[in-house]
Amino acid sequence: MNNEQWPLYEIFIRAKSGLSHRHVGSLHASDADMALDHARDLYTRRGEGVSIWAVESRTIIASDPAESSALFEPAADKIYRHPTFYEVPDGVENL
């Protein structure tokens, strides 16, 4: 069984120019060419894409949700990063 194992690829599709690639799912393929072909057949049958990225799942590095508070919460209280934090006097434009 191991001899025939085809690696798992994650697939990202750009629906149309101007948009980012979005993750749509995964599939198995024996090589990169096949991954693209299969992605086209599986995820763009109804014209849903102009560009495909296929990435071997094992190469993806993901943040750990258990650490999400350490990773993400500190940003929540650095409110000076948001434009709404700053007062702009009435009548001042282009700011």
Binding site: N3, E4, W6
Partner: peptide
């Protein structure tokens, strides 16, 4: 289909 899947995997390894 086993021989087909094996062939594809073998080819990928060769490449």
């Amino acid at each position: 289909g086993a021989w087909v899947r094996e062939a594809a995997a073998a080819y990928a390894r060769k490449q």
